[in-house]
Design a protein around this nucleic acid. Structure first.
Lengths: 235, 235
DNA sequence: CGTCTGTTTGATAGCGCTCAAAGGGGGTGG
DNA sequence: CCACCCCCTTTGAGCGCTATCAAACAGACG
């Protein structure tokens, strides 16, 4: 169960400030958000929002990883994105959430009432602008993912996935050629349109060919980035 | 080759006004857009924008159908969307177009300079708001398409595609249970992550089972909508 | 140490791709 | 106006990739 915090000064102490939407506000105005937001902590497996549920709130992730997924009647699942620090749930103006959001790791996030936020956006056009940029960026990523899902082989999918994770880590300031995968092989499969077994076999295959090396199941070192880039874009 | 028109009053005569972004402007202000826009006509196969090209312009489609696609090095193509009346190309703030846009039929569209439009948006917040809504809607559609591409069988994909086309026609005021498919089987395949042959076989199969009937290759009557809905959502 | 969950490896089958050819409809030229 | 041609679509045969079913393995936790 997610647990709400009562800390009255969480915003000023927030470590995600520089990458979140509140980045668009002046320091002295952050206390406006403070009064409108609730800080929540969730454990692995906790549900943040359910698909189809009325979209009353906007959530801003400040720590951890969240997966967004949609289900088919036959139980097949498609993960449509993994969110991390600074990412938003519920920014689209739809009346209902179009996906379920579930914590992959321990997660901290801020909850805002969407109705109240609309007022704030009126006073801080830069925030609305920033949300539009985030949405546009997600659209672009979604279209790239459509290319992956529709036209790439299992190995190409895994290579693309590893590279996009590495690029994301680089954007957030990380160096090196090694990445952490907090989600399970099953989750990776549901994101790439594959089964657990095929994901596992592809990892093994890439390892055998010298493209990557594994340290446990969740830490991956990209040994041959150029080779992976070639694979990911269709040889 | 696309051909620019010199008609100085195209906006006031525009039949797409009610579904385009200019809907957000008062009648007396439309002449502002008039002076900033160029009306262009393109023939089937003409390219509107190339993937990777510098994104200088915003395009608003007023007639016809456009396909957006991305290419892999091995020649595989993924169509990420079909656009029609009222849809926009280049609304995301990215520096370069992330896809190629090509006319599927004869197409009319308006060209705006993005830099100039940014000024207009400052004066007409409702337009910016409307673009955000359109982008958010496209994101939602893209995520639905991810579910389709990653987790549906060929028949389920075709059923989903036909239903989404029918819903779109209904939103634009069309009645009945019949739709027009201006794009080729090959295009449909590249949208659904299938080959031409599999698309054709799936149409035949749905016809044989009584879900649809065909009039020529481009007109489809949905004989059993409930059955198709069940199929599309995973039996 | 035992259990439980997640991962890897193995064997088999099926869906959709590839290669191939026939069928059909629209446009053009005679 | 008709015939031909070209391209798109449909149908057919066979194969390969990935899903499915199954079991061994490994790591975390009590």
């Amino acid at each position: 169960m997610p647990i709400a915090s009562t800390d009255p000064s969480h915003c000023s102490k927030c470590t995600a400030r520089s990458v979140s939407l509140c980045e668009a506000m002046a320091d002295r105005d952050v206390d406006v958000l403070e009064s409108l937001s609730t800080r929540i902590r969730a454990s692995k497996g906790d549900i943040v929002v359910h698909e189809g549920e009325s979209a009353r709130n906007l959530y801003n992730i400040t720590m951890g990883t969240v997966k967004l997924y949609k289900l088919l009647a036959d139980g097949h699942r498609q993960i449509v994105g993994f969110l991390g620090m600074g990412d938003l749930i519920g920014m689209s103006p739809e009346a209902n959430y179009p996906f379920t959001a579930e914590a992959v790791t321990s997660v901290n996030y801020c909850q805002f009432n969407r109705e109240q936020m609309r007022t704030v956006f009126g006073e801080y056009p830069a925030m609305r602008e920033r949300i539009f940029e985030i949405a546009a960026n997600e659209l672009s990523e979604a279209q790239e993912q459509m290319l992956l899902l529709g036209r790439k082989t299992a190995q190409e999918k895994i290579a693309s996935f590893l590279l996009s994770r590495l690029r994301k880590a680089e954007r957030l300031g990380g160096g090196g050629n090694s990445i952490e995968l907090p989600m399970s092989r099953h989750d990776i499969g549901d994101f790439l349109g594959l089964t657990t077994e095929t994901v596992s076999r592809s990892f093994t295959s890439l390892k055998t060919k010298g493209f990557i090396s594994l340290d446990g199941t969740s830490r991956v070192k990209l040994q041959d980035r150029a080779g992976l880039e070639a694979l990911a874009s269709g040889s």
